[in-house]
Each structure stands twice: as C-alpha cells, then as structure tokens.
Amino acid sequence: MDGPGAVAVGAEGLGLKGPRGWAFRGVDVKAEPGALVAIEGPSGSGRTCLLLALTGRMKPTEGTASVGRLRLPKQLSAVRRISALAHVPGVTDLDPALTVGEHLRERALLEQRFGSSLRALLRPRAERRAASRLRIDTALAAAGLDLDALPKGPRTAVRDLERTEALRLSVALAMIGKPRLLGVDDTDLKLSDAERAEVWDLLRSVAESGTTVLAVCSEAPEGAVVVSTAPKKAAAEAAAHDAADDAADGTENGNDDDKETANALA
C-alpha cells in the first residue's frame, strides 16, 4: 500500500450503468498527487456517481481506475480507507439540530474508536483527549473554519451556518480522518461568484497541503485538472445504441439492470 501523502488518480474508459442507463461513460482521468481535480458537467451528467466511484463508494461497470497503487474496481474497500467525502447530499449530511462542536467531537470519537490502532486505544484518557483535540484543531485549520468567528462559537447550531461555513465544516469533518483523497460534491451550488472563489481557494489549499482533491462543479476553476462527465460523441452513440437494445429486449434487460445496479452499489 502507498505510504502517507497525497495520491495520484487515474482512469481509462470508466463507466457506470444503472437501471436508467449510463450514469457516466468513457471517462478518462490523469491527476498527479496533490492535484485539484474538477469534475465538471451539467446537472444529471453523472458527476456525483463518478466522485463516488473514484473514492471507492460505487463499483464501476466498465473501465479501470487507480488511486495511488490501488486498483478499481478490485480494491474498493482499500480505497475507501484512504479517502473521505464532504458535502455529498444524502451521504454526509449535517444534522441541523446539532452544534458545530458536537459534530466535531462525534467525528473525532468515531475516528479514535474505528480509525486508530489498538495501541492508541489503550493510551491514558488524557492522552486520547489531547490526540482528539489535535485532530480537530488540525482539521479546522485545513478547512479554514474559525470557531471564534461563528455567532455562538462551537455552540453554533448547524442550521445557523452560512453556506460556505457549512461546507467548511463538512470538509473539516472529513479531514479529521487525515484522508489522502478528498471528494467534495456540489462545490459551487447556489453560491455567489465571491463565495465560489472562496471555496476554490479552500480546496486549493487542501490540495497543496498534501491531500488530492476531487471536486464536483458546474464550471471548473482556472488551474484545476478538468474531468468532464458531459457525454462524448462516441460514448453518446454507444449509449443510444444500448438504449435501443434495452427497449427491444424489454423487461429482460430491466431485470439485468437491477442486478448491475446492485453490484455497482456493493
């Protein structure tokens, strides 16, 4: 397995098919360790599915991908262990009733319980508390989230956060696990131009600090490695051909699609 540090991400002809057809197809990726990768495309073009596939959360239907020395789809669980997600609707949703501090403490506790070695768990309580505090402080610094600047400090409820503050909190929670690959969804959704620039500056700093970043967006920023999910001509023609075949085969193909989707989510 790779040592510590950011990882390279690559893919050739990557595709994922579900019951309604191809979520994405024919995607190629080539990004060096510590890169900021912008997954660009219109809404509904499979951007989030690609993000989940490259972080080991969904199983591709065709093609191959790599995260460092790990290979997809064969090593999904290994990729999940070195990656983290932030700001993904339905996956990393923040609880609006909890405070910022409660979210941070809960994530640090889970990381300490399930992400630490047995030796670390046997350390004195004071040492474990100090280690958790350090993880939280480091993650907050990486996400650029200043608790003192919030209306009620760490006691601020998530429902009272601005959009960019909520995104920073989600990134901080992901960074508590010290991932080598960070996936962020909807980076520019409903943000002003100034807020978009702020978010991209944040993600650039995360990448520069040693974590490769995959970020879903509608428009990639300057300097990012751009991966488009917009259908290519050849892939679009192949998808249209498959759709025609599916229509001809009727329910038989529908049953097959259900099985493929189950495999993709395994």
Rank of each mutant, 00 (worst) to 15 (best):
Met1Gly: 15
Gly3Thr: 03
Pro4Glu: 01
Ala6Lys: 02
Ala6Phe: 04
Ala8Tyr: 07
Gly13Asp: 09
Gly15Phe: 08
Asp28Asn: 12
Pro33Lys: 05
Ile39Leu: 15
Ile39Ser: 05
Pro42Ala: 13
Thr48Gln: 01
Ala53Asn: 06
Ala53Gln: 07
Leu54Phe: 08
Thr55Met: 07
Met58Ile: 13
Lys59Ile: 09
Glu62His: 03
Gly63Met: 09
Thr64Tyr: 05
Val67Trp: 05
Pro73Ala: 11
Ser77Ile: 11
Ile82His: 02
Ala84Ile: 05
His87Tyr: 14
Leu94Gly: 03
Leu98Met: 15
His103Gly: 04
His103Gln: 02
Arg113Cys: 00
Ser116Lys: 02
Arg123Phe: 03
Arg123His: 06
Ala126Lys: 09
Ala130His: 08
Leu134Pro: 05
Gly144Lys: 07
Asp146Glu: 14
Lys152Leu: 13
Gly153Ile: 00
Asp160Met: 10
Leu161Trp: 08
Leu161Phe: 09
Glu162Ser: 15
Glu162Trp: 12
Arg163Gln: 14
Arg163Tyr: 05
Glu165Phe: 02
Leu167His: 02
Met175Asn: 03
Met175Phe: 03
Ile176His: 03
Gly177Trp: 00
Leu182Ala: 01
Val184Phe: 02
Asp185Gly: 09
Asp188Thr: 06
Arg196Thr: 12
Ala197Phe: 00
Pro231Gln: 07
Asp246Pro: 01
Ala248Leu: 12
Thr251Ser: 12
Asn253His: 13
Asn253Tyr: 07
Asn255Val: 15
Asp256Ser: 11
Asp257Thr: 04
Glu260Arg: 15
Leu265Asn: 12
